[in-house]
Nucleic acid binder design. Structure first.
Length: 772
DNA sequence: GAGTTTGAAACT
DNA sequence: CAGTTTCAAACTC
């Protein structure tokens, strides 16, 4: 901070305080933002990826050169709005040179108007071509990141000028452009700058970056954008800002600390407060941001992934793991470890944030259906921090997957999609999605192995604004691969999409919730015993199959790789993953709790056997299924609120749940084990989700939510007295989740933030983002 | 690739 | 809330 650079920068930062403009715009953006943000959220990851790619490649180069110059000049003068972005990039270059800029909060004002303006104006980006999407995303993300950045910066005390930050953000691009710098930049990369920019927008901050020549922020920004969107949508943002959760703060602090903060004074900026939820999210992403330039690409992809991927959650989870374990890798690449994530002593925290991102529950469901395919794609990207090369990323992902116990299965799948993600995104970015092009799909399929990996719809009458549309249901924007007609599920129509989403959610709060809930155990189980996993997971609503005997994809349960449960109203159920009767019995047992355990065991065993027979061979996904838990986690973040508000989609389920819940205590399942207690009847679903979430992180595994069905025998957990051991377990997981998120703040804080989000933005795109 | 089947989603 | 219609995916040929 103190370094001459600082002073130098300060002198440089002629950039006028765009704050006002920026802040105003930013604010507006936030407020209105949701739309943009939403779009960003929904925007298919593909788009983002594309944009990023473009930027990284051609754009960067261009920017780097022309813009850089401009940047310098810009530094003194606010650049043009449109150019702002580029300028940022340029600035990034500058930043590279000077990167360390500290702007005090007071300086925050310094933020270059241009950049700020630009950033704040997501709309501009959006309007643009497919690229727009990316840009907007950046903007959004930048905003999101800003929060993070703020935190980081704040923590760092470093005060970077918004302009600088902007630069940084773009710098990442620049870096990309400049092949030479990447290495250095990587080190420097800090999402911070972006964050700073964002923060600047928010007005809070000031960020500064020190050395971070390049800023990968852009990448993180994209992600952050998603968060922002979610935040925005969620209102939570504001609330969060106003009331930063202790946990978040702590988290940020830690992040900051981890990063370079040591270098920078640990000042807490005003922004810190503001950071709150957003920051949290950002933090989550931060890891990504932090990731070295190399990761940038991946991160970008991740964006797309997030949006799209159902596995989002899983990805997030995996990311966590990745970060934790792989963090080292990242740090290595980055060299400086500025990325909080990497540095984070507490991997858990960082991961948790990501997990939060994973919010997109829907995705889970989708993911399930795709069976891994989808998962593969996005998750991969999302999971992978961002390695220099995708391949690396893959490797990382894989590694990450390995690391993940539960997610592991997911990870595998994720890997698959590298191709898909990249290509798809690229293609998707364009609006073409609407245009019917089965070919695209094919392509995806071809590329992704699983054509399904990438979600694509063929809607003709629904305009992709109904749950009929898989993309929409998954919380992702339609992309090129889609062969839909009259598609309105595009970033350009964010508002429409959001409003529609809200309507649907209003009608059915769980509409976008993951259809299949997996117990945390599932992952483990799957890993260990494929048989169990399926059992663990259950379709929330349950199916209503009559002719398919729950043996075809028509059956959502089957499609999701889960057995039918008491919630199902199917006739002649022959679900290989678990028959309804069995499920019912299991539930009954659960109801009985301890009492019927023995019986359940027997039944479950049978089920398991069946499953075992079927699953392994027939349903690879089962493994995938475990993924859901992670998603759930993320989803839990978003959705919990929703759930709270949400009405049980179907009374029947609710009923069952309620009955179950009765035994369980709502909410608070702070301790994992306590989770048992926790199940609140009301939240059964939520709990499940949460459970899932928690599971990944915690031990969910230990307890098998699945318990219901899965084999109680297998898991003592199942034994859980409560009607559904699995669920109980889930609850447990929930508590754990919070803990993961922020040890400091504790789950509660997290929960709050989450809840706010969820509530705030029905869209939540979290999912989409998460989505991947 | 076209047509049919299926069951969820949406509507009444 | 129940019944019907609409819709798009899944499936079949």
């Amino acid at each position: 901070m103190d370094s001459p650079l600082f002073s130098f920068i300060d002198s440089l930062s002629p950039i006028e305080p765009l704050k006002s403009t920026y802040s105003a715009s930013s604010i507006q953006a936030y407020q209105s933002l949701n739309i943009t943000s939403i779009s960003s959220i929904f925007t298919s990851p593909h788009d983002n990826a594309q944009k990023e790619l473009k930027l990284s490649k051609s754009s960067f180069a261009e920017f780097s050169e022309s813009e850089v110059c401009a940047d310098e000049s810009d530094k003194n003068k606010p650049s043009k709005s449109s150019n702002a972005v580029r300028l940022f990039a340029c600035t990034s270059t500058l930043t590279q040179a000077n990167q360390k800029m500290t702007s005090s909060a007071s300086k925050g004002t310094v933020v270059p108007a241009e950049g700020l303006n630009d950033l704040p104006q997501p709309g501009q980006f959006d309007t643009g071509s497919p690229d727009h999407n990316t840009r907007p995303c950046h903007g959004v993300r930048s905003d999101l990141k800003q929060g993070k950045v703020r935190k980081l910066q704040a923590f760092q005390t470093a005060k970077t000028n918004t302009s600088e930050k902007r630069k940084c953000l773009f710098s990442t691009e620049v870096q990309l452009l400049d092949g030479s710098q990447p290495g250095k930049l990587n080190d420097e990369i800090l999402g911070c700058e972006w964050d700073d920019l964002i923060s600047a927008t928010s007005g809070e901050l000031i960020a500064y970056d020190e050395d971070h020549k390049g800023v990968q922020l852009a990448v993180s920004n994209a992600e952050s954008c998603g968060f922002l969107l979610s935040k925005l949508t969620g209102d939570g943002d504001i609330s969060d800002r106003t009331h930063p959760t202790s946990s978040t703060q702590t988290y940020y602090r830690e992040l900051l600390m981890e990063e370079d903060q040591t270098e920078n004074a640990q000042l807490v900026l005003d922004g810190e407060k503001n950071i709150s939820s957003e920051e949290i999210q950002d933090n989550l992403y931060e890891a990504n941001e932090c990731i070295p330039t190399d990761y940038k690409v991946e991160t970008q992809q991740q964006r797309g992934m997030r949006r799209r991927c159902l596995f989002f959650e899983a990805a997030g989870y995996s990311n966590r793991i990745m970060q934790k374990e792989s963090v080292m890798d990242l740090s290595v690449s980055t060299g400086k470890g500025k990325s909080p994530v990497q540095n984070h002593p507490n991997p858990g925290k960082t991961p948790s944030p990501r997990v939060l991102r994973g919010i997109g529950l829907h995705l889970n469901a989708l993911a399930l259906t795709p069976k891994g395919k989808m998962i593969c794609q996005d998750p991969m990207t999302s999971l992978v921090p961002s390695s220099a090369t995708q391949q690396d990323a893959h490797g990382k992902l894989l590694s990450a997957g390995e690391n993940f116990v539960n997610p592991g299965g997911d990870l595998l799948e994720l890997q698959m999609d590298d191709d898909c993600s990249a290509e798809i995104f690229l293609e998707n970015d364009h609006d073409s999605s609407q245009s019917n092009s089965p070919q695209k799909k094919r392509r995806k399929a071809d590329n992704g192995d699983d054509g399904e990996a990438c979600k694509r719809c063929s809607c003709k009458k629904s305009k992709c604004l109904k749950l009929y549309c898989e993309c929409f249901a998954a919380g992702v924007y339609c992309s090129e691969p889609c062969s839909c007609q009259g598609c309105l599920n595009k970033p350009i129509h964010e508002e429409i999409v959001l409003s529609t989403r809200k309507q649907i959610e209003f009608r059915n709060p769980l509409a976008f919730a993951p259809k299949v809930i997996r117990t945390s155990d599932a992952g483990q189980d799957t890993g260990e015993d494929p048989n169990n996993t399926p059992a663990s997971a259950r379709h929330k609503r349950g199916c209503n199959c009559k002719k398919s005997s729950c043996l075809k994809k028509y059956c959502e349960c089957y499609q999701g790789g889960v057995g039918c449960s008491s919630n199902c109203r199917c006739e002649g159920c022959k679900n290989t993953f678990g028959k309804r009767d069995a499920a019912v019995s299991t539930e009954a047992e659960e109801m009985k709790q301890g009492v019927g355990e023995a019986e359940n065991c027997g039944k479950e065993k049978e089920n398991d056997l069946q499953k075992a027979n079927v699953q392994p061979e027939d349903h690879p996904f089962l493994e995938l299924v475990p993924i859901t838990p992670p998603f759930d986690v993320s989803s839990s973040l978003l959705k919990p609120p929703n759930f709270s508000s949400a009405k049980p989609p179907r009374p029947t389920k609710a009923r069952t749940n309620s009955s179950r819940s009765s035994s369980k205590a709502p909410g608070a399942v702070h301790s994992q084990k306590s989770s048992k207690i926790a199940d609140s009847g009301s939240n059964e679903e939520m709990p499940d989700i949460l459970r899932n979430d928690a599971s990944p992180g915690n031990c969910v595994k230990t307890s098998s939510p699945n318990g219901k069905r899965v084999s109680p025998p297998h898991n003592a957990l199942s034994v859980s007295p409560n009607r559904k051991g699995g669920r109980k377990l889930i609850l447990k997981s929930i508590p754990s989740f919070p803990s993961l998120i922020g040890d400091t703040s504790s789950g509660s804080s997290m929960n709050n933030s989450q809840s706010t989000f969820s509530t705030a933005s029905p869209l939540a795109l979290g999912p989409s983002e998460a989505g991947c």
